[in-house]
């Protein structure tokens, strides 16, 4: 099928799955920011996303979208390296106007994946997964649906905060290119819109970064006082 065989088809899959992940990030960021204003409201959302069919189906759809994005990223990168050939230029420089992020999307994606592992181990494993295996009782940090307790616990530890900020920074770079690139692949671009889309990309990536980072920073300082 052309979707899996042609280069533009595979890029379309990257584009659609990327936009889907962007939508999820927007939701997740909004949910996190809630915690700054009201821990009860945040825990309300956590309870909603515990073990019920909607949340589990949602998680599975999200995970498959994520896997598709990662699998095709590797597939395309391998093909691209092969197309580049075995002989590399000895002397080569990135031309002016080429974004750093655009040439390092796979590396940035890998950093995002590593951050995700840490995040799963610290939050998801103790929250939705704990409930999934039937452990509704309190563990060391708090009850599985007491998200605010987890936030307060982990973001009082300096290295965890630093790791999360690095993670968000990699995500910022990834999004500045990914956002407009996804739309370019869909064919929504021309000489006028390219600059607008790049500008929107930067603003959007910064809003996402700011939202996520503010939660880490606010709770770190709250833990000090």
């Amino acid at each position: 099928m052309w979707l899996f065989k042609s280069s533009i088809g595979k890029k379309l899959i990257m584009s659609i799955s990327g936009i889907f992940l962007i939508l999820f990030l927007t939701f997740h960021m909004g949910m996190n920011v809630t915690a700054i204003f009201s821990e009860e409201a945040y825990n309300g959302i956590c309870e909603l996303l515990g073990v019920n069919w909607y949340a589990i189906v949602g998680t599975l759809v999200l995970a498959s979208g994520f896997l598709v994005h990662v699998i095709f990223a590797f597939l395309l990168t391998l093909q691209n390296r092969k197309a580049r050939g075995n002989k590399r230029y000895v002397h080569s420089k990135a031309p002016a106007g080429v974004e750093f992020a655009s040439q390092n999307m796979l590396v940035l994606g890998l950093i995002v994946c590593m951050g995700l592992l840490l995040h799963f181990a610290q939050f998801w494993y103790n929250m939705q997964f704990a409930e999934l295996i039937g452990n509704h009782s309190n563990n060391l940090i708090g009850s599985p649906s007491d998200g605010a307790a987890f936030i307060k616990h982990w973001f009082s530890i300096p290295w965890v905060c630093a790791a999360y900020l690095v993670w968000f920074a990699a995500l910022w770079f990834h999004l500045t290119h990914g956002f407009w690139s996804a739309l370019q692949t869909l064919g929504w671009n021309n000489a006028i819109w390219i600059n607008r889309l790049k500008c929107i990309s930067n603003i959007f990536a910064t809003v996402i970064f700011g939202g996520f980072a503010s939660v880490v920073i606010v709770f770190y300082f709250k833990s000090l006082v």
Binding site: L76, K82, A83, R84, G97, S102, Q103, W180
Partner: peptide, 9 residues
């Protein structure tokens, strides 16, 4: 040929 990743090089 490879797949375009919109680097703009």
């Amino acid at each position: 040929f490879g797949n375009c990743t919109n680097t703009g090089a």
